[in-house]
Design a protein around this nucleic acid. Structure first.
Lengths: 253, 253
DNA sequence: ACAATAGTGTCTTTTAGACAGTATTTG
DNA sequence: CAAATACTGTCTAAAAGACACTATTGT
């Protein structure tokens, strides 16, 4: 921490504003065919009883990414090996937490649902629950409306948009799936994250046309919710990026 | 963590690790035809004499974005009205600053070069200088190599990549230009940021085909470095996004 | 056998890339 | 007028979208 002598004084932390720094995690999976996010019910004030993203304070000797991974294990039982983890954005509005000055770096975590322990397995006894993301953010039924604590609804919206756009030009969709999956499985990921329907034949042609994106695994299996003919299994290949990208429909202005 | 009711006490900042939080700014412009970044020579330890991104501690009552804008004015004379400002990423490795625990949120700022006061106009007397980004990050001449302080080279690389990819699907290129510009001006922005050459006729067709991306301004003018026939002037239109995108060449693997 | 989904082939439309050639303006 | 760049038109290749049809598997 310290190397020299005279500037130590000058940079004493007490001479600068001190902040609490947290990591919040947007943990998403496809559960029962729906894009879902894990939320935790707040036990204390403020926002008591409201739902919030899992997260917590980062330790003095760890990075915020490390903190995100640690909190995720503690609160959800998901370990980083299973999860894709990516920094989303940092939220620093001075009044985002009424108690104190907290700067929070949000992370996106994606997991195959099969990897998940029951959320209740977290070490502390807080109640955790999966929520369907689209129902929560754009409720058709008023009953689906959920009030999120702090600025967590904004964080969730930002996280959803990030995942949606990354599906366009990366192999990120596979992060929702087990190692071996069918093209129908992958297509359903796209359909659910984008909240749309896709043309199966064209989706196949597109995905298989990208070099090294997917590679066949030497077996056939049934798609997750299969009900007919079983299909070729694939695993993720070495290509990280799709070029040209596979774009969502243009957003209406 | 917290489950109790006397939360005020429990959330006292002194009970949690306290961090210094800073904002660093990747301020870029096209100067003399080259994509350039403003760096400041460090006066004190560590990395004394090395070049660093402008930035500084955020105040207890402001957001990190606000701090970035404020520091930019203080150190470079550029005000936010002139600049495009966007959060890049947060850097939080525990050993990124040898003196103390500092978490820094980096921002990208883009300005038309004509808007710039001389960098020396900053309030504190530190030396500021423009560097050509591509020469700095990928020096062909060993003389161009510049050692950046802290993890600022990584931040600059991340910032460059962000700007490069945003040119693909947004109207961000116009942030480098004055209000009225020619298609040749805009093309030169793309060429310089992507460090490539583009086909002028196809570039024109692409840009003009996106609805509301550019609108004619009722006059002709000469391109910034024009030497022949003068051209139609455009200003940025209402469209934020380009669909379909205008992609860089595929990155080699 | 039938239902259901996997997978193939092909036609059309759109977009990208290349490039020839004309039009205008500056010096 | 010459040099230089703006601008237009057109051909070709690649990719996207739509859709008909065949193949294979589970029940």
């Amino acid at each position: 921490m310290t190397t020299e002598t005279n500037f130590l004084e000058e940079y004493d932390a007490r001479k600068y504003p001190a902040f609490a720094v947290t990591s919040d995690i947007v943990l998403m999976t496809i559960r029962r065919g729906k894009l879902s996010v894990l939320l935790i019910e707040r036990a204390g004030h403020p926002f008591q009883g409201a739902w919030a993203l899992p997260g917590g304070f980062i330790n003095i000797d760890e990075s915020s990414e490390n903190a995100a991974a640690r909190e995720m294990v503690e609160e959800t039982g998901v370990t980083v090996d299973d999860a894709y983890l990516e920094q989303l954005k940092t939220y620093s509005s001075p009044d985002r937490d009424p108690r104190m000055r907290v700067v929070s770096t949000a992370y996106i975590a994606l997991v195959p649902h099969s990897e998940l322990a029951t959320p209740e397995a977290g070490s502390d006894a807080k109640r955790a629950q999966w929520f369907a993301v689209h129902d929560l953010l754009d409720p058709r039924d008023p009953e689906d409306a959920v009030a999120l604590a702090f600025d967590h609804e904004q964080i969730l919206r930002d996280g959803l948009r990030r995942v949606q756009s990354k599906l366009e030009y990366t192999a990120l969709g596979t992060a929702f799936l087990d190692e071996a999956f069918t093209l129908a499985d992958l297509r359903r990921i796209y359909e659910e994250v984008w909240n749309t329907t896709l043309h199966a034949a064209n989706f196949r042609r597109k995905m298989l046309s990208v070099q090294n994106l997917l590679e066949e695994v030497g077996a056939k299996g049934s798609s997750v919710f299969g009900d007919g003919r079983s299909a070729q299994l694939y695993r993720r290949g070495s290509a990280e990026l799709m070029y040209p990208p596979f774009m969502m429909e243009e957003v209406e202005v």
